[in-house]
Design a protein around this nucleic acid. Structure first.
Lengths: 203, 203, 203, 203
DNA sequence: AAGTAACCGAGACGGTACGTCCGGTCTTTGG
DNA sequence: CCAAAGACCGGACGTACCGTCTCGGTTACTT
């Protein structure tokens, strides 16, 4: 048995970009209107004016589709530009994070995806590859700049620091229900950066 | 002839404790065997030898039942006894936490509940009241003992520290998929406590 | 607590006539409001302010209760008094029959009972004993008076004639849906009596 | 680019004739095995190897399905061929009728349908259109042949005669419980035809 | 230009579970 | 011992979606 599976070029009709976009748009709308658990493939197909088969042809699961729809929001992906001090950068990045999570397609969608990740290895792979690093990257960069400037100790474990910073935010969002406000962010960045600083806190 | 139409206290058959226990046990077994998303009310009723109505009579949702079943495991609730130093206590508590989450009825169940509490206010209330404080309490106590001994600064925000400690654990469990091992715990407790310590790390 | 005031033969509380009447009344009301197939034991118990057990204690089936409720309507049982000629008597009896069947608790209830009779031997026995003869009796008597007067042939099979007369009425009511009006009754009694008459119809 | 948004006639998968037949067959089998009141949609679906939705998609009610299943028996629909005399024809047709009603899918099914048509206008329409005329047609034809031969009076109301003949049969079947045997049929056809005859019975 | 392959919307299909209703039974308290 | 209340097990209801499987019909490349 030899592997070819494509005679030469691309036979047959191409994927309809129109349908693709309609499906993504319908998914996003339904996420806002009904929330993750009530977004069904059937509803998406109906809203998008598309056959169910077309969805199953291109996405392996509802969660994969939701993930793509979620990621297709530009504001979800673009972090704020770097500012001045490490303290300011960290605070700005956390503020951006909670703003994104407070949107209609924010925290609840993440919660649903988080649950599905636990049972869907392929989805988890996509989430760990596309979502998590996008969130962590800018934060790690900000801390590294702080290290370069000598504000943060050279031997600080920056990845661990991001685990703590982002972890605290998601912990409040998903588990404890405590508020995600600017005061929280201020205290969180202050105390965490204090532990990473080269000089002891004065006073 | 006068009509006495008051409820008159407690009429009718009482709730069957036998059925109650059978339902909880069946739920726990099915959570282990099939995982949260595949545990159905119908399967629980069949396993417990109970009518579905009996389940719907006493629990408002599948999630509420799973929550109760989850909490009925003694080992989930009882944290380890206090040890010697703050460092040892924190590390032991984190070790206990990841051990609980690694159990069959551990992390996946929490992930499912976490997803459901985003859309179910009553369930969220129960989760915030029964699950979250049970996890935080021992950790806060350990940190307070450290404060009493002078190992931790008096002005440290201990609740925030628990947000960071537990947050980092749940972040890895639910979102990033990074391993929850003893090395991680060691570094996490070290770096976090370092930020709370009265004297700065030398060097 | 000592035993008094009970002669010996009758232990325990007596059957509550109050509940009995309430159950019958509730059944009758529900038959009118909802129709036979939607009258449930539960609804009867609730309407009557009675426990379900009390119903099950005194009636073997829903149909038996409906039968008793149906028979408890006085107008169902009392046929019109005998008139003058056989022709008049027969016509009056048929008119009474279709009037009874046109009532709210009339034809539809009979149809439901008729269906249940086919699978419930005890109920069938009660129906054949209490309902059918009550309907046939007056008609047979009228025809016998006609025989006595010489209007009807002595060798006529009167029971068979009642089968045909009542059968035609119930056939229209239950099976064919044709109207049950006075014209029908007139023609039916005319043609049937014509076949039983001593002298041939003139012209 | 123009939009052609008309339904375009016949889109989507066609109805499965295989499933259709399996459902009818399963219904007929279950009617024989369990009787009308114990034939559930769920049992039919399971027996036919079919989803419940497929049944609900094509039949508005259990009774409508039973009606179709009942009518799909060839022997139910086809009356015996015309014989010689009117007397013989009538007797043969009545014999055929009681034979059909004595079958496993006979009288009890009719009783159940009869009960249901009292509350279901659509079903009643089907019953009056498909069942009743199929039964009456041959009988009316036989009587009309008798009229043609001069055995039956020209002014006789033949429809009324069929009401009486069939009515008497169904009355015994459904209401009175009296036997449906050949003696009954003989006397019934004799007395009824006697009333329709052109010459009076002598003696 | 004809043939062929993969796509598309539509929607029926076999299933599974849902949450509700009711049947008939059992277990309380109270008269 | 009966009655009202109401929980119990069981089973069917009719609905909603799942993921799959035809349909007729539409591109678009290959021959």
């Amino acid at each position: 048995m030899h592997e070819s599976s494509r005679p030469s070029g691309e036979r047959g009709r191409r994927r309809s970009e129109r349908s693709h976009q309609a499906i993504i748009a319908a998914t996003r709308e339904l996420l806002v209107e009904r929330g993750y658990p009530d977004v069904t493939i059937e509803a998406i197909a109906a809203r998008a004016g598309v056959g169910k088969q077309t969805i199953y042809r291109w996405w392996p699961s509802r969660a994969a589709l939701v993930l793509e729809a979620y990621l297709s929001s530009a504001d979800v992906v673009t972090p704020p530009a770097a500012g001045g001090t490490t303290r300011e950068d960290v605070r700005a990045l956390l503020a951006w994070l909670i703003a994104v999570l407070a949107e209609p397609t924010g925290g609840h969608v993440v919660a649903g995806l988080v649950a599905d990740i636990q049972h869907d290895a392929d989805l988890a792979e996509g989430f760990h590859r596309d979502v998590v690093p996008a969130r962590r990257g800018a934060m790690v960069a900000a801390l590294e700049r702080g290290q370069g400037r000598g504000e943060i100790r050279a031997d600080a474990d920056l990845e661990l620091a991001v685990d703590a910073l982002h972890g605290a935010v998601f912990y409040r969002l998903l588990l404890s229900g405590e508020p995600l406000d600017t005061d929280f962010i201020a205290r969180l960045s202050e105390q965490t950066l204090g532990g990473l600083a080269t000089s002891p806190p004065t006073g």
